[in-house]
Structures are given as structure tokens and as C-alpha cells.
Design a protein around this nucleic acid. Structure first.
Length: 280
DNA sequence: CGGGACGCCTGTGAGC
DNA sequence: TGCTCACAGGCGTCCC
């Protein structure tokens, strides 16, 4: 479910309420993708720092009792995860059957709801130590990092012969695009998803990077996509999916040329595109 | 080494 | 109505 815009919307929603909050309890439900890696009871009394994001991971720093760093929690929402923030004082029912992680703090409850349980919450002593470092080390550049330039992006594309859409999903050239935004960015850049990565010229690479950035920025502005169940930490859904030009619109007219949107399967993922507008 | 397929889970919607 | 099947926003791991 959550791609970079949804994860960033989530991070923004929890950052202010959690910063400086004190953990009173940590509860686990059914197992997520990986074990937490630390005894839940040992988190009681720790403070929380400012949540940050890398790719589709959220890093929640923990503060020791004497304000010394105490590691943090690395969160991933997987395919079907979302976080809910329930401020103290509001009626809070018991955790639901898909609430598999809960932080009880003096300011409220943070719950991770994830029906498919592809998500994860993992303790790490530091961002640059295992297990966090191992999970983050292979991530490509952030889409809005100024160090990511058309030239450097193009250079990464040149190193692979795989279809460009597959490369976008791998996160090696740039992180953040999942299946929806990879399809949408390729449409906006008028590049065919099957186009071999190393055959993309510098001008087209420039166009793709610009399309990716504007697609992600637009989605962020609209609160992300809520195809099924994604919502922000207050339970409000995003609006981007109504703007999707091709994703999930097989057979419907291309908004640009009215040719029917087509679907193909690439790397076991549905891929939507306009065969008339998107050339190899 | 790069590239591609698998598997982790549960829910939902379409088709019969 | 109820069953079966395809498919769903991700990604680490394994195999070729």
C-alpha cells in the first residue's frame, strides 16, 4: 500500500505528537515481518524523539532517561499497514485484530494496523548499526535530494538492462516509487514501462526524474492514495488515487489521447500504461 | 554479478 | 448465497 507519499504523510502525522512523549507500555499483537528484537517491557520509561524517514521506512528515535541516545524503532508499513494516533483523553477501544503493535505514551496511543503483516517494527541501537543499517544500506537516493541530478540518475539507468519500470521499483536509482507512482511517473514522462533502462537517453532520463518528482510531490500534497484502506494517522484518506491517469484504469480512456489504458504484468506486478502516449 | 521469481499473509471483489 | 480464484500499495532472499 504505502509508497513514499503515504509514508511521509504518516511520518508528518506522528512527528509532533510523539516528540517528547514518554513510553508507558509497548504491546505486540501477531508477529510482523521480523521480530522486534528487544523485550517489550524494556521500553517503558523511554522518551521519543523526532520521527524521520528514509525511503519507505520511518525511524522513531528513543531517548534514554538521561537524554542520551537509546537507539530507536524502525517501522515499515509493508503492503497494508497504517498508523493511527489516538490522543490521550479521547475514547480508545481495545486494539483490533490487525493492530499488531501499540505504543502507549503519556500523550496517547500509537497503533500499527496491518492486515497482511508484511510490515515491520524493529529495534535498532542506532541507524547506522544492524539491523537498521542492513535494511537501509541498499536504498538509492531520496527523490528530492539535490544531489540526485539528471546526470547521476541517467548514469544509474545506464548500469542496468532491466525494464525501466522494474528499475524504478527496485529503488536503486531513486527510492519512493511503488507500483502506483512508477506507473504514473512513466506515463507523465511518456516512457514505455518495458523500455530497457540502459537505452534511455539523458534528455528522457531528465524528463523521467522530473515526472517522478512532480508525481510524488502531487501525491504528497493530496495526502497520498487510498485505494483500499490507507489513511493518515487521524483516519483520513488521501485523494491522489482519483487523479491517477493510468493506474488501475485498464480499458478506460487515456486522459491524454483517449486510447484505452493497457495492462501488462512485469515482475509479477500489474503495470498500466498508454501504448499510444508511452513509447519505448 | 545481474536479473527474475518466490514467499511472506489476509482481505476483497469478480465470476460461476 | 456461497464457493473458488485472481489479485492487492513491498521487499528480502534464493536460485539461475
Amino acid at each position: 500500500m504505502p509508497e513514499l507519499p503515504e509514508v511521509e504523510v504518516t511520518r508528518r502525522g506522528i512527528a509532533a505528537p510523539l516528540q517528547g512523549a514518554l513510553i508507558q507500555a509497548l504491546h505486540l499483537g501477531k508477529p510482523l515481518r521480523w521480530p522486534l528484537g528487544r523485550e517489550p517491557a524494556s521500553f517503558t520509561g523511554l522518551g521519543l524523539g523526532l520521527a524521520s524517514r528514509r525511503g519507505k521506512y520511518i525511524w522513531l528515535p528513543l531517548l534514554g532517561s538521561e537524554a542520551s541516545p537509546a537507539g530507536g524503532l524502525l517501522l515499515h508499513l509493508g503492503m497494508s499497514g497504517s498508523l493511527a494516533w489516538l490522543p490521550a483523553g479521547t475514547p480508545t477501544g481495545p486494539p483490533g485484530p490487525h493492530d499488531h503493535f501499540e505504543l502507549v505514551t503519556n500523550r496517547g496511543h500509537l497503533r500499527l494496523n496491518d492486515p497482511r503483516r508484511f510490515g515491520a517494527v524493529v529495534y535498532s541501537a542506532a541507524l547506522d548499526q544492524a539491523p537498521a543499517a542492513r535494511l537501509l544500506e541498499r536504498l538509492g537516493p531520496e527523490p528530492f535530494d539535490p544531489a540526485l541530478t539528471p546526470a547521476s540518475f541517467h548514469a544509474t539507468l545506464q548500469r542496468h538492462r532491466t525494464p525501466v519500470k522494474t528499475l524504478l521499483l527496485s529503488g536503486e536509482a531513486v527510492v519512493g516509487a511503488g507500483n502506483i507512482y512508477a506507473c504514473e511517473a512513466l506515463f507523465a514522462a511518456r516512457i514505455h514501462p518495458l523500455q530497457r533502462s540502459d537505452r534511455i537517453s539523458l534528455p528522457r532520463a531528465r524528463r523521467l526524474l522530473a515526472a517522478l518528482r512532480s508525481t510524488l510531490a502531487r501525491a504528497l500534497q493530496l495526502g497520498g492514495s487510498s485505494l483500499r484502506d490507507f489513511s493518515d494517522v487521524h483516519g483520513v484518506g488521501g485523494a491522489y488515487q482519483a487523479q491517477a491517469a493510468v493506474y488501475g484504469r485498464q480499458g478506460q480512456p487515456c486522459p491524454n489521447c483517449a486510447a484505452p489504458v493497457r495492462r501488462l504484468v512485469l515482475g509479477q506486478r500489474s503495470t498500466y500504461f498508454c501504448a499510444r502516449c508511452q513509447k519505448p
